[in-house]
């Protein structure tokens, strides 16, 4: 049994890129085994999409589509992405910060930025899968056309990354690990209702004006344009990206990084 390292000193540390890939792989494996997170991020949006979409299958869709599902499915795709990248990631980032798991990792040669970056990457992978799954379910069950690939992927990338930054920021406000789900969901669900995920908010109303300042409404619009074949909604995506940049800047100011 070799315990001492005196004859092993020339061995090099693994590269940060290799460690990040490995960490993402393990994060994904752990994530799929977490029933509560899979239920929150995949089962809940899927159930909402199928139940409400079926109930209101023939209801009018408003200015963006002929039928309610034509608008509701893109909205739910946006919400599914946000549930994973904002709420799910916020819970996991709070866990990393508050349980000592992050502190234990900081005592190893793993670069300090790797654990959180791996969590963000994991949430983007799961969020994209959730968005694709919801779009497929909308097409198969509710007869909604699939989105144009490029606008859909751009909206998913910009929305996922920006809401991930917001999720990490909110995780720094969580006081105790037990309250992480409550804090993140307390932000997510009022935001979803205010932004009109489930039912249209009258244009010009106070709620509408507030929603237009927040990022979810703009992500929903980008998804609706992708589903409706209207291309890229660059103005809305810029607002979403601005929220992400702001959140990342605030988080960096609150948590000085370590190399």
């Amino acid at each position: 049994m070799t315990l001492l390292r005196s004859d092993l000193r020339d061995t090099a540390l693994p590269s940060p890129a290799h460690l990040l890939r490995r960490q993402i792989r393990y994060e994904l494996r752990a994530h799929w085994r977490s029933r509560s997170l899979v239920a929150l991020e995949l089962a809940l949006p899927l159930a909402l999409l199928l139940i409400m979409g079926s109930l209101l299958r023939n209801a009018p869709g408003g200015p963006l589509g002929d039928r309610y599902p034509d608008v509701f499915v893109p909205n739910m795709v946006a919400l599914g992405l946000v549930t994973t990248c904002f709420a799910g990631l916020g819970i996991e980032a709070a866990y990393l910060r508050l349980t000592g798991a992050g502190k234990r990792l900081r005592g190893t040669p793993l670069p300090g930025w790797v654990p959180l970056t791996a969590l963000v990457a994991q949430s983007l992978v799961v969020g994209t899968l959730a968005a694709v799954l919801l779009a497929l379910a909308g097409a198969l069950v509710l007869g909604v056309a699939l989105p144009a690939a490029a606008p859909f992927l751009v909206a998913t990338a910009v929305g996922g990354t920006s809401f991930a930054a917001l999720g990490v920021l909110v995780s720094t406000l969580v006081p105790r690990v037990e309250s992480a789900p409550a804090v993140t969901n307390l932000v997510l669900w009022p935001l979803a209702v205010l932004s009109g995920v489930f039912t249209a908010v009258p244009t010009g109303s106070l709620m509408y004006r507030i929603a237009m300042v927040l990022p979810l409404r703009h992500l929903m619009d980008a998804m609706n344009d992708a589903f409706g074949g209207r291309g890229f909604e660059w103005g809305g995506l810029a607002v979403v990206a601005a929220w992400g940049v702001g959140a990342a800047t605030l988080t960096a100011a609150r948590r000085p990084g370590r190399t």
């Binding site: 390292r5 540390l13 393990y26 494996r29 752990a30 994530h31 085994r33 977490s34 866990y95 349980t99 000592g100 798991a101 502190k103 234990r104 005592g107 190893t108 040669p109």
Partner: peptide
């Protein structure tokens, strides 16, 4: 490289329960 030479058992911390 310095942390590569250390081992630490914290007083209190949780482990990733899914692995």
């Amino acid at each position: 490289a310095w942390r590569d030479r250390l081992g630490i058992v914290l007083q209190e911390s949780r482990l990733v329960s899914e692995l």
